[in-house]
């Protein structure tokens, strides 16, 4: 699988206001990149932009089609469906087959028949991450994946990420804790904070995407 992601000179916005600009990096297969930066710097927005949920202001994102498995703050679990039903739904959506090995990898076998609503927060998170394994996509985009996981579960998660990287996958994570993944590099987003002076650079002519055209 091809997990090559190249981002060049990307500018993104949140609520009509530019938050990051000039973001460039390359993610090679088998590597992981950890996004760092203070709250509100735009980690979530960057991940959502890369996942294709919102258009970038400027710059290019090049990657193979259908490469990304996105995991946001919410896990997208249905409380009234069982663990198996939740997973088999996503397996069907992504067109991948068996999810039994995934249950094992995420230590969810014992919980198979339980309704997702009756799981603890950490167990839910594990189920949400199991969805990534089921997706069969090469590039994982994880927004705070370790929230509400205990130490053992974090280790389990790190192990899953490492296995994914070893299989030629890649991962992009916004997280504050050290996962102990040797392959991971760190990208600090603070230097890319958008500055107002340059944000209006394309304000002339047709006054494109940003409100700066009005100023």
């Amino acid at each position: 699988m091809n997990a090559h992601l190249t981002v060049t000179d990307l500018a993104i916005r949140r609520g009509g206001i530019p938050v990051l600009e000039g973001v460039s990096f390359t993610l090679q297969p088998g590597r992981a990149l950890v996004l760092r930066g203070p709250n509100g710097v735009g980690k979530t927005t960057l991940l959502r932009t890369l996942a294709g949920l919102q258009p970038p202001l400027a710059g290019t994102i090049s990657m193979p089609p259908d490469a990304i498995a996105y995991s946001g703050h919410a896990d997208g679990l249905k409380a009234t469906l069982s663990v198996t039903e939740n997973l088999s739904f996503w397996a069907a959506i992504y067109g991948t087959g068996g999810f039994a090995p995934v249950l094992e990898a995420m230590n969810l076998e014992a919980l198979q028949g339980r309704l997702a609503g009756s799981l603890s927060a950490g167990q839910k998170r594990r189920l949400g991450l199991a969805r990534l394994l089921v997706s069969g996509r090469p590039i994982w985009m994880l927004d705070e994946p370790t929230v509400s996981l205990d130490a053992a579960s974090v280790a389990l998660f790190a192990q899953a990420v490492r296995a994914h990287l070893a299989g030629g996958g890649a991962a992009l994570m916004a997280t504050h804790i050290d996962l102990g993944i040797a392959e991971a590099e760190v990208l600090d987003l603070a230097p890319f904070k958008a500055r107002p002076s340059t944000a209006g650079g394309n304000a002339g002519g047709r006054g494109r995407e940003f409100d700066e055209a009005f100023a």
Partner: peptide
């Protein structure tokens, strides 16, 4: 409407600076 958008744009610029 344009003036009110302009106001918002200027406020946003101030917040960012």
């Amino acid at each position: 409407e344009i003036r009110s958008r302009r106001l918002k744009a200027l406020e946003a610029r101030e917040r960012m600076a």
